[in-house]
Design a protein around this nucleic acid. Sequence first.
DNA 1: GTGATTGCAAATCTTTTGCACTAAA
DNA 2: TTTAGTGCAAAAGATTTGCAATCAC
Lengths: 141, 141
Amino acid sequence: MMEARPYANVIEVIRAARLRPTRQRLALARLLFESGDRHVTAEQLHNEALTAQVPVSLATVYNALHQFVAAGLLREVVVNPGRSYFDTNVSDHHHFFHEDDGQLTDIAGDRIEVKDLPKPPPGTAVRRVDVIIRVAQKDKQ
Amino acid sequence: MMEARPYANVIEVIRAARLRPTRQRLALARLLFESGDRHVTAEQLHNEALTAQVPVSLATVYNALHQFVAAGLLREVVVNPGRSYFDTNVSDHHHFFHEDDGQLTDIAGDRIEVKDLPKPPPGTAVRRVDVIIRVAQKDKQ
DNA sequence: GTGATTGCAAATCTTTTGCACTAAA
DNA sequence: TTTAGTGCAAAAGATTTGCAATCAC
């Protein structure tokens, strides 16, 4: 399991992504990948790093997040205009989006079946199918 | 049909939304609703208005778009972090998102069936289900 | 060493806001 | 005349960029 040799594992993960295991990337990877599935914004992760006594600049957090996405270690979830969420669960799955507090919750991929997926337009291929179930408190409005 | 008395119709639509039919709102509503289903950004609509010799400020475009959304005349579609699209089709349907050029295309609601929709978390109700099929050119990457 | 990475501050981009002016009812 | 709506310029919030200093190999 990852818990057994967490430090070593994170180094391997970063090396596999063809990135240098710098202090900053290691710390961010540990925060992201060593506590189960997470959905974080750049600013949240930045704050966590500072709290954990790891000085990192926000620009470096953005760099790392995008590099991790490019390497397939993270997935960017778009639910809110003007703010990106990064999801450590890169397997096929979907999301509840809680409009009241901006929280994301995973829905296992096999819990939703999309039937009759239309053919993509000629010349194009499907990159991903995102299903977002927007929920809010029952009594609201 | 809407084509028969376009001007009068747009006035009625705006009045029904409990908004005053100002020159700006009328012009924006005509651009939006008198040429079939559309997906526009605030800036696009602003440019169209200026091109059509209708001086409007960008702030007013944003105001109008949000008021139209609140009135149920438009739907906001979130596919891109940092930019909102507004969809004149407010019926139940989904979208292709063309990652190459940022275009949105409608998918009729009955072309996709979401099976086994999970129960929303306790105390919450489903507001909307968004299905976004992200497509890109086949040869890309 | 040398090429990648970082941090900072400035820049960019979209959207929102405050407020005096104008227009609709 | 009363209240809503508009335009402008400034502000806000998220993200990106340029570049000198620093670090990994």
